[in-house]
Computed example of a mutant assay.
Amino acid sequence: MTDYKKHENSPYIGPKLSGLGTKLSWYARQKMFKSLMEMADITPEITVLDVGVTSDRRLDCNFFEKLYPYPHKLTAVGLEDASFLEQDYPGLTFVKTDGLRLPFPDKSFDLGVSFAVIEHVGSRDNQRAFIHELCRVSRTCFITTPNRWYPIEFHTALPLIHWLPHSWFRQILRWLGKEFWAKEANLNLLSEKNMLSLFPVDAKVRKKHFRLLGLISNLVFYIEN
Results as ranks from 00 to 15, higher is better:
G91Y: 01
D60I: 03
H166K: 14
N188A: 07
E184V: 15
L219M: 05
W181C: 04
D110H: 01
D41T: 11
Y4D: 07
R174M: 15
H72E: 15
Q171Y: 13
D98W: 10
G122W: 00
D202R: 04
F199I: 06
L198M: 07
H132A: 02
L173D: 10
P71D: 12
E86P: 04
G52W: 01
E65K: 06
I118P: 00
G21W: 12
A157V: 12
A157I: 15
P151W: 08
S197R: 15
M32T: 14
E80S: 13
P90T: 03
I152A: 04
Q171R: 14
P71L: 07
S123C: 09
F130P: 02
N188V: 10
F84K: 10
R139M: 07
K34S: 13
L49S: 01
D60K: 13
T43C: 12
F142E: 00
P71R: 09
H132W: 08
S55Q: 15
R29A: 10
G177H: 13
R136V: 01
I131D: 04
I13Y: 05
K34Y: 08
D50K: 00
L198Y: 03
H120W: 03
L164D: 11
N225P: 05
F199H: 07
K96S: 12
L134Y: 02
A157Q: 13
P146E: 08
G122L: 04
V137W: 00
M37T: 10
V95H: 01
T54F: 04
T97Y: 08
D81C: 11
G52L: 00
H7W: 08
F109T: 00
L20Q: 14
P44A: 02
G91S: 08
T145Y: 03
E119G: 04
T47G: 05
N188L: 13
F115A: 05
S123N: 10
W175P: 01
R174V: 11
D50Q: 02
V53S: 05
P90K: 02
V220I: 07
M195I: 08
L187S: 09
H209N: 03
K6N: 12
R174F: 10
R58M: 07
A76L: 09
S55M: 11
T156A: 10
L196Y: 07
K16N: 15
A203T: 14
D50L: 01
L102G: 00
R124S: 06
G177N: 14
A116E: 14
L189W: 04
G112C: 01
V95C: 06
D98G: 11
H166L: 15
C61V: 13
S35E: 14
K34M: 04
T2E: 12
F199E: 09
G78V: 05
L59E: 13
G112L: 00
L189K: 12
Q171C: 11
N126K: 11
F94G: 03
K6T: 11
K207L: 06
E133I: 00
K73P: 03
I42N: 02
D3M: 08
V220C: 05
R174D: 10
S217E: 04
